[in-house]
Amino acid sequence: MPHYEKEITVTLDDLDDLNHVNNVRYVQWIQDISKEHWKAKAPESIQDEVVWVVLTHHIEYKSAAVLHDTIHIKTHIESSKGAKSIRIVEMFHSKTNTLILRSSTEWCLLNKVTLKPMRISENIQEIFA
């Protein structure tokens, strides 16, 4: 599966009381890269019709990131079935390539007008294949 990738640098606002990146910030980054991947790949005509919502996040924290660390984030769609899709996000320390975290998020596709779940079309699946 093709990956979507980006790098970010940890700032003071990202830190918790232990001077590590706050867990809430990691969740925000997971959601941010997921949205960016969708917006970068899906045609506007499809984006105008549907919206994704999170059903579950499962996050495994492997190591800590600290101020000024550069983090390489990558994401891909692992699988899709019915209205649900599993998206993987991994974050690595850019200099050491040490895994910081791995997340698996279950997303549900909704009709943008009715907000009811809808089957993921072949067109959408092909965008991320």
Score class of each variant (00 low, 15 high):
D13W: 06
E78G: 11
S34M: 10
V10M: 11
M91I: 00
D17W: 09
V51F: 15
H57E: 01
I73C: 02
A40W: 01
Q125D: 04
V24I: 12
E106C: 13
I59G: 04
E106Q: 11
D48F: 08
L15V: 05
W107R: 12
V10S: 05
R25S: 06
E126W: 01
L99D: 07
H57V: 04
S104I: 08
E106F: 01
N97D: 15
K41N: 12
E126R: 08
K41V: 09
T98F: 04
D14I: 05
E90W: 01
W38T: 02
I127N: 05
E78A: 14
W29R: 05
I88C: 06
D14E: 00
G82D: 11
S103L: 06
K81S: 08
W107M: 12
H58W: 11
K62W: 01
M1T: 12
Q31H: 15
S94A: 15
H68G: 05
I88N: 06
I46W: 00
N111K: 03
V24W: 01
T98S: 14
V113H: 11
W38F: 14
W38A: 03
S79R: 14
H58D: 12
N111H: 11
K112V: 04
D16Q: 01
I71Y: 07
T105Q: 09
F128T: 04
T114L: 02
I86R: 06
K112L: 11
N123K: 07
V27R: 05
W107F: 11
V89K: 03
H68A: 13
L101A: 14
S85A: 13
K39C: 09
M1P: 10
P2R: 09
C108I: 10
V10I: 11
F92W: 12
H72S: 09
K116I: 06
K62E: 09
V113W: 03
I59F: 02
T9A: 07
V66W: 03
N19D: 12
V50P: 11
S103T: 13
P43Q: 02
V10C: 07
K74D: 12
S34N: 13
K95T: 11
L18V: 07
W107V: 03
A129G: 09
Q47W: 01
V51K: 13
V113P: 06
